[in-house]
Design a protein around this nucleic acid. Sequence first.
DNA 1: CCCAATGCTCGAAACGATTTGACCGATGGT
DNA 2: ACCATCGGTCAAATCGTTTCGAGCATTGGG
Lengths: 358, 358
Amino acid sequence: MGRTPGSRPTLARVAEHAGVSVSTASLAFSGAGPITGETRDKVLTSAAALGYTGPNPLGRQLRRGRSGIVGVVIGDHPGRAFRDPVAVQVLDGLVDVLGTQGLGVLLIPGVSGSVDGVDPLLETAAMDVAVLVWGVLSDDPTLAALQRRNVRVVVGDGRPVDGAPLVTIDDRGGIAEAVRHLVALGHTRIAEIALPFGHGERSGPVDATRLTRADRTPTANRLAGVRDAVDPVLTWETPASLVEHGRDAATEILSTWVPAAERPTAIVAHSDLLAAGAVIAARELGLRIPEDVSIAGFDGLDLPWLSPDVLTSVHQPLREKGAALGQAVIDLLAGEEARTVTLPVGLTIGTTTGPAPE
Amino acid sequence: MGRTPGSRPTLARVAEHAGVSVSTASLAFSGAGPITGETRDKVLTSAAALGYTGPNPLGRQLRRGRSGIVGVVIGDHPGRAFRDPVAVQVLDGLVDVLGTQGLGVLLIPGVSGSVDGVDPLLETAAMDVAVLVWGVLSDDPTLAALQRRNVRVVVGDGRPVDGAPLVTIDDRGGIAEAVRHLVALGHTRIAEIALPFGHGERSGPVDATRLTRADRTPTANRLAGVRDAVDPVLTWETPASLVEHGRDAATEILSTWVPAAERPTAIVAHSDLLAAGAVIAARELGLRIPEDVSIAGFDGLDLPWLSPDVLTSVHQPLREKGAALGQAVIDLLAGEEARTVTLPVGLTIGTTTGPAPE
DNA sequence: CCCAATGCTCGAAACGATTTGACCGATGGT
DNA sequence: ACCATCGGTCAAATCGTTTCGAGCATTGGG
């Protein structure tokens, strides 16, 4: 087939075989620019004869100065980050929208295998834009590495970065609404299960000074939102938004508060996974939901395995958030100005909240 | 900074500024080949002065003929594929191993947004190898597209492809062991909840002719394995390995079989998510587990939200499967021969199986 | 019959790096 | 002193494509 077997045919060889110039052959494939149907067919026929499978992406990318790749920095190993349906749904919306522009998503772990430094992909991989979601810290080595390379960045759910587009939600207002719902039901002793404050794997009750140390933006905003509505009797920090951590936290909260008369009558969790864990803990302790304890979450996930309970939760449009991130990427590549998009949230009442006991 | 502001400095400009040749400058960055520390410093200093952030990946890739990218074809939209922890854990192992070689993972949806054809990324994106997992069909358009482009392929959990490495497990032997466990406990009326047979979204009981139509390899093998141990009273096909489908299936299986004397006393599911759904259905029907019905799954997932139940399940090493896939990719790029790796499985007894009633 | 316009095709110059082999001065052995 | 060796540097070729502007027929109008 090819002249040197083993090495793939190139556009130049196809052109030669078809008796046209390389530029014309290129036109036959790209479709940009004027070309006779006849000539195009001739080129395509030669291509087929030589086993040429289309322009080599590497050559095209170099020439165009674009890789067509969007790096997505996930805050953790995929195995952990994607245990959270929140991350998965956002990713889904993102992939869909980028796909319409022929852009691909490169997965970049936010924590490196080695203890120090960031993932090598961050330093070397080709990407037109990077998307930073799920836990941008104030002093993020990931962000620093990208900025050092002059890679443009889109931020989701984090603190604003210089000239980077930001997609976010009203964390504070949303969770405040959930807590007001609890207050309206007569709850006064409300406990809080919080998202991680930073990357440290801390777990346990939070005191006043620790409260000011919440580095991740959604966490800080949700802490504030809760306090807009009530002063929680206890805030419990978790190492990750996972069911088992919610369960551990709720077990502590509900069983150390003996006598029952002083036990919190409601728990507000910063995420649905944490709330689901709390539901499970309550069940294990023989508590009825919502008669003995009310539980509210955040995210609006569909959790069929929690059946028959349905979480009261602050719904956020996750796929839309991903889509908005994708759109921000596209706009950035088109040279438009960075904008901030804030998506709406809203409380959805389920079966896990009800009137306070007594 | 750069000569033409707005366009990034290149290695050539750095070399010029440092008073060395381009080749020497290249050496300073790549570290391959002999170079004086003094010269290297000179180059690095110039680079810093010009704001050069390291060799452009696009140029490097073209020259090397390698993109450093591994395309991972997920059988569905990420939003659905990653709701299954099985897929997530495999991905995790894969990303980890590829990361050690500086290889990145490009996510490619297996189904395109448009009804016909495959995802454009499959046709155009640069990748050194593609990994095909989770549902390679016998006549897979995805595979066909990759082969047309001459992209080398690594297959996981599917039917063997010509000269492609394959990573698999003993589906058949594993599930047979689980069913034998049920038989040993005295169960005779055993129902089966099966993984999808193909890409069609079918759901419902399976008859004899449909049984022969299982196109996906794991499904076919697990069907066979069940039959190695017992003849199930009923096989129920599901559209995806998700909790809600397991729940729907088990609800039908357990409630249409009145009188209770003829109800299956055990259910074997092709996956843990389906089995978990069955557990939830049984709970909802007021059946005790395992006193009234035993339930076994496959995968060995850790499902904290199923508490207090712990599934009896056939454990498979998912992260290791991903790691093996990654190693296969690396071997392929190193020019080694394609091998087939079969990973071990083993039955783990939980709390969801017990002696048959009566 | 001439000129302008139109429509294709082509040559050449990028895009930004890596790598091979030549070259050159210095070092060390005899 | 001479020659072989060696470490370091460099020039040039190459990777495969896209795109710009020029060039060349052909056509239509006046």
